[in-house]
Nucleic acid binder design. Structure first.
Lengths: 167, 167
DNA sequence: TGTTAAATAGTAATTATTCCTAAACAGGAA
DNA sequence: TTCCTGTTTAGGAATAATTACTATTTAACA
């Protein structure tokens, strides 16, 4: 999980990418997170170190890292894109309440049987299982809101406020 | 697969929805399609019958049908939302070339083992497997483009032009 | 048939993301 | 080390999908 500056530099070099402080900070923040942050989450996290940085740079950087295969993009609903530097095959558990995404590393899911009844000329290169439901916090909140109709969002369990739309 | 006007009317009534011509046409078009059309695809399909209709109405209608549980929304990448009136549990095969979505009805995938190592208080209500790869048409196109570098998109295999971004 | 809440259509607003461009900078070459 | 060049950055503008607002219309019940 932990990775040094030189490791990052080598990875960038291997992909033909320049090692800039901003890019390093963004990739490092993503490597350290398991919360699948959005571009804005990452921006908020690295902005203190780079007061002049623009959100644009985060988008550009994430685009470059994705194209280079160093990160993956995860999509749930039509909320904003979420990013993941964990490249080992894994699956996701998605809370429909707070939009939290939890990694599911169960290796049994990596060996699914080939699906029946699909076009013969379709070439499958990967698969991913998305489990949906409610996290403990949202379950408790929902029960409470049914009983006492408490409105709005509850504080997320994810440090750094990595949740979905706030509307 | 085939459903009558009265069936639709009953479904709407059961959800407390009014039966309007526009709403009926949109839902009917979705029921008849297996291509997981976008809001704009549906708009294009029903617009000839309703020259005054606005895309807005399609979005509103799809929102109402989704909230009522009559349709599902499917998301791939951060392209526009795709819709599906097939409510029986199933999975998807997604072409990374033309964004086609094919239903995978293999019942073995509906009985996945409960994932290991997830928070105990997370309540899973559904799961879905997304297989990704290239459809036959896109595979042939890709091979050709490697050999002869032919640019741009190929004509999709999906009737009605149900493909993703054309950029 | 009249009433009323829901639905429609049109316009405007919003949100996430991408595009464009000039200035700054990393990293290889001299 | 210094220079050069193409990449990266930051800022502003543009775009694309979707949602919000609102007046008018309409379905469905009384």
């Amino acid at each position: 999980m932990d990775i040094s500056f030189n490791d990052i530099k080598q990875k960038f070099k291997g992909c033909g990418l320049k090692t800039t402080p901003q890019r390093t900070a963004i990739y490092d923040a993503l490597l350290r997170s398991t919360a699948h942050p959005t571009a804005e989450d990452l921006f908020a996290q690295v902005a203190p170190q780079f007061p002049m940085m623009s959100l644009n740079t985060v988008y550009y950087t994430l685009g470059v890292l994705r194209t280079s295969g160093l990160i993956h993009e995860v999509n749930i609903g039509h909320a904003r894109a979420r990013f993941d530097a964990n490249l080992s095959p894994h699956h996701h558990l998605i809370c429909l309440g707070c939009q939290a995404i939890v990694d599911v590393m169960d290796p049994r899911l990596n060996r699914l049987t080939f699906p029946a009844g699909i076009p013969k000329d379709f070439e499958i290169t990967s698969h991913q299982v998305a489990f949906r439901g409610l996290c403990g916090s949202c379950r408790r909140h929902t029960e409470r809101s049914i009983n006492h109709s408490s409105p709005g969002l509850h504080p997320t369990t994810v440090k750094g406020g990595l949740h979905g739309k706030s509307s």
